[in-house]
Amino acid sequence: MVNTKADKEKIYEYLREIVDPEIPVLSIMDMGIVRDLILHDDEVEVVITPTYTGCPAMDMISMQIRMHLSSYGFPKNKVTMVLSPAWTTEWMTEEGKKKLKAYGIAPPNPRQQGCDEKLFAEAEAVQCPHCDSWHTHRVSEFGSTACKALYQCDDCKEPFDHFKCH
């Protein structure tokens, strides 16, 4: 395989087609979990990092990357998992945040709030992804998956998931 920049960009494009199985509007590139792409002489190595340690989507994502690259003509490929530096929602792309909102999930706020040890802290202000109101309240700090909290809008009354800061 020729180790050129063009090849890398091509592969990044392929990786952009792989989505998070639990949030199918976000690609793994949008999530910021692809940390590196290494072109060895005869092998493609994709370095990824987990969002949460117990995230069950990671095994599936690894498998999808491998199958996807094989189907694009890179049968010799491997996925390596790194833990440090630890993933943070700050690595999510702006485009990814827009896609999340359009999907009905409030994206993580640009500046991290409410991640400290302070007890009974006021819930983070989160904008309703349906009607844009900031008049919302947190129903539960833990939601349908490890990365989300449950909110409800006080104006349109819709419940919604918030991708919490991490």
Binding site: P50, Y52, T53, V82, L83, S84, P85, A86, W87, C115, D116, E117, H166
Partner: peptide, 11 residues
Amino acid sequence: AIVEKSIKEVA
């Protein structure tokens, strides 16, 4: 590295 990854969850 494992600890760095886990500590935010522990918090």
